[in-house]
Design a protein around this nucleic acid. Sequence first.
DNA 1: TTCCTGATTTGACTTTTGTCAAATTCTTCT
DNA 2: AGAAGAATTTGACAAAAGTCAAATCAGGAA
Lengths: 188, 188
Amino acid sequence: MVTHIIDYFNSICSLPEELVADLERLVVIRELKKDEFLLKAGKVSNHASWILKGLVRSYYLKDTEEVTTKFLWEGATITSVFSFYTRKAGNENIVALEDTTLASLHYDDLQYLYKEHPAFNYIGRVITEKYLYMLEVEVYNLRKQKAEDRYQFIVKHLPGLLQRVPLKYLATYLGMNLETLSRIRARR
Amino acid sequence: MVTHIIDYFNSICSLPEELVADLERLVVIRELKKDEFLLKAGKVSNHASWILKGLVRSYYLKDTEEVTTKFLWEGATITSVFSFYTRKAGNENIVALEDTTLASLHYDDLQYLYKEHPAFNYIGRVITEKYLYMLEVEVYNLRKQKAEDRYQFIVKHLPGLLQRVPLKYLATYLGMNLETLSRIRARR
DNA sequence: TTCCTGATTTGACTTTTGTCAAATTCTTCT
DNA sequence: AGAAGAATTTGACAAAAGTCAAATCAGGAA
């Protein structure tokens, strides 16, 4: 299991042996059952994780409504950007929508890797850049005025998501309510 | 001028002398007059820049309408994330809203710095994280359903922007049209 | 100052989306 | 299979935001 994530890092930049040894020691494999939480609002996020299998959702509470901010699946990196980097409690919840397997690094261990292994800074930078790019795409879609256009973007670019995610979560993710999403799907 | 940006990098992580020497050699100071372009749609973005003075706007064309995606000013990092990282032409335009002074690094020089100076990856990652966090805040605001709430977020967190930016640009940035923004400002 | 152009506001009306309530449909558990 | 609960759809209506046209305002150029 740990080898998968090491292979992934290796594909970004070839890892020195001592770094591989440290990773094997520090990377933790974790299993989340459906509906189990990886992070709860009010807690500090201590782990950056890579999803080996499964699907998670992150959301925050606006009044009584859950607003979904992200869906992440196999191959994705997941953490609460705010909480992990600032070391403060945030309002973000992360929960498994399916049984999920993660490779995780603790914040302290990550800092240790950055300090001891210059190459790991290269990897950290590239992964952060990828995450940034993903977020830009998300913002681009969210800025569309019409609810229909935002939905069609998912149909076109992430059709698999429609099979794996309940519509009530997709609706708040796309900034519309459930009934609107249902009606958009009905036309056609 | 170049010293400002080197001081900034130094504040993130102390720079070895050879890195400072390379930076002094590679960082280019550029001046943009109001309405001059830093990047035009259809071109590959070759520079990452830091704004020393001034204000720029990035936008793309949706049909005939300009959709503003970002306002960035003193202290901010600016590039087209998509085009700069993928080395492909994008749809993003970046234009100065005020006379602006930039410190820029060419893509190739940046890659050279990353390869030759591991410490610079640390800096690149931290800057990317900051940008990422800024973007998360932006998404958070955009996901608000009510146009009024999105505007009030600016009033509360970026009141200075209201003095520096024409409302027509602010409107598309906030995902509403000019008349709606004007009416929101009229209620009080 | 006066004119011109662009920025902003206002009005009348249309379209889109939200709200609330109820009906279906689908899943899961026994 | 049958029941309970969740997910999704549908209907009627209300609220929010968009559209188009016109008026007003503000800053710069002559």
